[in-house]
Design a binder for these strands. Structure first.
Length: 681
DNA sequence: AGGCGCACTTTTTTT
DNA sequence: AAGTGCGCCT
């Protein structure tokens, strides 16, 4: 479609973005480099479709997190105006499939089943292993089996390969050698038995876990032509963000919609950082062969960063032995050289970041212009501390969210029990929070309770046998009374469990206690307990953001892990602890693929910066970097070792506030952009 | 036996 | 901060 005066986009899109947004073919893959206007293009696409008369409910927007999906949707609605009745949906693959299963009892036996909370999978496995393999048998830990199970489902690989990956950190083809090792064969047999029992258990108790949902949708649509027709008939356009993080299982779901819908997928292979969840960064290259009739459009102009920032990012990527199909160029020439800052103690690092932010704000800047990024979420703790001490407002992404905290999960067992009285796992966790009840007694009590036909009779039976504390009975009954007032129900649950929880959490109780107000507030927004249970499991992060420190002011510094920072950008970016052994992580660098994923992760971090980029690294680390068989033996730095001095300034914090160095004073870079090597074979 | 408490490790990253 | 292992107590 040619541009003309009726074009809704005017000058806001470049040619490639415009071509993508107004694409008229069947399926499109948009390969969008960092800062190339990926989100803007998805939004433009949605606006274009709406403009063309496609109704909101015929469009699905899928992203990797609820947070980013929601953000895209709200930006679209903002730009389109308020004509929406909330028909436009932004979702994750998981919440999408959850909805499909719920809405189609005619195709899915699982429609009314209960979702097995992810943090409960390991204990469920522990529960079934007790009855199917002998104690002390050669078998991985429950949590490892849970990971193995997820791995097999998400990547569609063999059990052997998944075990090799999870237990040994290696992901290789060729199972023969493994299967010749008698020890491995024994472990594998046990894992098989446990997983089989786990699958049976879930079916018997009408439970599905996150990954099961995707698989069940894909399977059903595969086998049942009616289901395929009806379900894929509910949507015309599927817009997928972060396509590079899509794994085999998600791909499988998507492929079922190829016939009936239009796919519009946006991604960047160089920003693929979810291999641990089964994403394969190369799978995006297979798009055109998997999806018939697909076209590809590339966005290669970076609008976000200065050339100086992009030079370092491109250099990093160019150092990779892998080949990324990338030719990013910046529209913003020059810019301040990024700074590498060496430190000796984490405090030096945190202090320096905070001082830089304070100075920028004192000079008239905003807190919101600053973004602190870390590989692991605990690395943000020091920065947090300094921000608090200096009264710098901040928000933090990543890490354990409220709804994953142990005390919250403990309390919510009452909700799960009321929502589904036969939820054995919820019962066990609930009962175990009372003094004197451990695994064995809890199992016995549950057995008695479930012998009844409903909650009332079950509880009565347990009371008759005198095996259940009165407190445990009355708390559940109280919660049950307020089934349609979840906010009040939380208060009741807390009243019933408080004394038990105080004992359990001892000193940390004073910190945990205050979370329950927020939880009650949150729950009160749902119509009833069952709805809340279903919703919170699908949307934990969103709830957390709602409760976060955001309310006070919007001008805040953002602290985030890279994985939670997808799509974020800021004028000034501080990347924390880019030190060999930490980044790449010493435990995750056995294979080149692991190290390269870490590199992509760093690439994502660097490309968040618009104007100023600070890379922090620990001085003299890596001396003993070879804990993992010298795989990191590339001097003190794995990633930054050969960084050309012309690309950055370098400084060293010697001790409190004393900064030396400036080994490179050149303020501006006006050299032509470095381009990554590219294999044209 | 079953539950508890203490000391110890172990943690990436997320739906 | 939460899970694991082990010895002690009821």
């Amino acid at each position: 479609m040619a541009r003309n005066e009726t074009d809704i986009f005017g000058e806001e899109l470049n040619e490639a973005q415009h071509a993508a947004a107004t694409f008229e073919g069947k399926h499109l893959l948009v390969l969008a480099g960092a800062g190339s206007g990926k989100t803007r293009t998805i939004i433009a696409r949605a606006r274009y479709l709406l403009q063309k008369g496609v109704t909101e409910d015929r469009i699905r927007i899928l992203s990797f997190t609820n947070k980013s999906a929601d953000e895209i949707v709200s930006r679209i609605l903002r730009e389109v105006g308020s004509m929406s009745q909330g028909g436009l949906r932004g979702q994750t693959f998981h919440s999408w499939c959850y909805e499909i299963i719920r809405n189609h009892p005619e195709f899915f036996a699982q429609s009314a089943w209960t979702l097995l909370p992810p943090e409960e999978i390991a204990s469920c496995i522990g529960f079934v292993r007790g009855v199917c393999i002998p104690e002390g048998a050669a078998c991985p830990k429950n949590s490892e089996i849970a990971t193995i199970y997820g791995r097999v489902l998400n990547t569609r690989c063999s059990l052997t390969r998944a075990m090799h990956f999870v237990l040994d950190g290696r992901d290789t083809e060729g199972d023969e050698n493994m299967n010749r090792d008698p020890g491995f064969v024994e472990r594998k047999a046990n894992v098989s038995t446990v997983i089989q029992a786990f699958i049976d258990y879930k079916a018997e108790h009408q439970l599905i876990d996150y990954d099961d949902m995707l698989d069940i949708v894909a399977q059903t649509m595969d086998a049942d032509a009616d289901a395929r027709r009806v379900i894929s008939g509910e949507v015309d356009h599927i817009l997928v963000d972060e396509m590079q993080d899509t794994n085999r299982l998600q791909y499988d779901v998507l492929l079922k919609f190829v016939e009936g819908s239009h796919l519009f997928c946006v991604g960047d292979d160089a920003q693929s950082i979810y291999a641990f969840r089964g994403a394969d960064f190369e799978s995006i290259h297979g798009f055109t062969s998997l999806v018939p009739d697909a076209k590809v459009i590339r966005l290669e102009t970076n609008y976000r960063s200065t050339q100086a920032v992009l030079d370092v990012s491109n250099w990093l990527l160019g150092q990779s032995p892998l080949h990324y199909d990338k030719h990013l160029h910046a529209v913003r020439n020059g810019g301040r050289l990024p700074t590498v800052i060496n430190w000796t103690t984490p405090d030096d690092q945190a202090r320096d970041i905070v001082q830089k932010i304070q100075k920028a704000v004192a000079d008239g800047g905003n807190y919101a212009d600053h973004l602190v990024l870390a590989r692991k979420n605990y690395e943000l703790n020091d920065v947090c501390r300094y921000c608090t001490a200096q009264k710098i407002p901040y928000q933090i992404f990543g890490g354990i969210v409220l709804l994953e905290c142990a005390h919250i999960l403990d309390l919510l067992t009452t909700f799960r029990i009321v929502a589904n009285y036969r939820d054995e796992l919820a019962w066990i966790r609930y009962l175990k929070s009372f003094r004197g009840i451990g695994d064995a007694l809890a199992s016995r009590i549950v057995l008695t309770i479930l012998s009844g036909s409903d909650l009332e009779t079950g509880l009565a039976a347990a009371q008759r046998q005198n095996i259940i504390p009165q407190q445990a009975v009355s708390a559940i009954k109280a919660v049950k009374t307020y089934e349609t007032q979840p906010g009040t129900a939380i208060v009741e649950a807390l009243r019933g469990m408080e004394s038990a929880l105080i004992e359990k959490y001892a000193q940390s109780w004073i910190y945990r206690k205050k979370d329950f107000d927020a939880l009650a507030e949150l729950a009160s927004q749902s119509p009833d307990i069952a709805a809340f249970v279903g919703e919170y499991l699908m949307n934990k992060a969103i709830f957390d953001i709602k409760l976060g420190p955001l309310e006070t002011t919007t001008d805040v510094v953002t602290l985030s892990t890279i994985h939670s920072a997808k799509g974020l950008e800021a004028k000034s970016v501080y990347v924390v602890n880019v030190t060999n052994g930490n980044w790449p992580d010493a435990r995750n660098c056995l294979e080149e693929a692991d190290r390269e994923e870490e590199r992509r992760c760093l690439y994502v971090a660097l490309t968040r910066a618009k104007d100023e980029l600070y890379i922090y690294r620990k001085l003299r680390s890596g001396v003993r970097a070879s804990a993992k068989k010298n795989l990191l033996a590339k001097g003190d730095d794995y990633f930054l070792a050969d960084l050309p001095s012309a690309l950055v300034e370098e400084m060293t914090i010697l001790k409190q506030g004393v900064i030396v160095g400036n080994q490179n004073q050149k303020p501006m870079s006006n050299r032509p952009a470095l381009k990554p090597r590219f294999n044209f074979d």
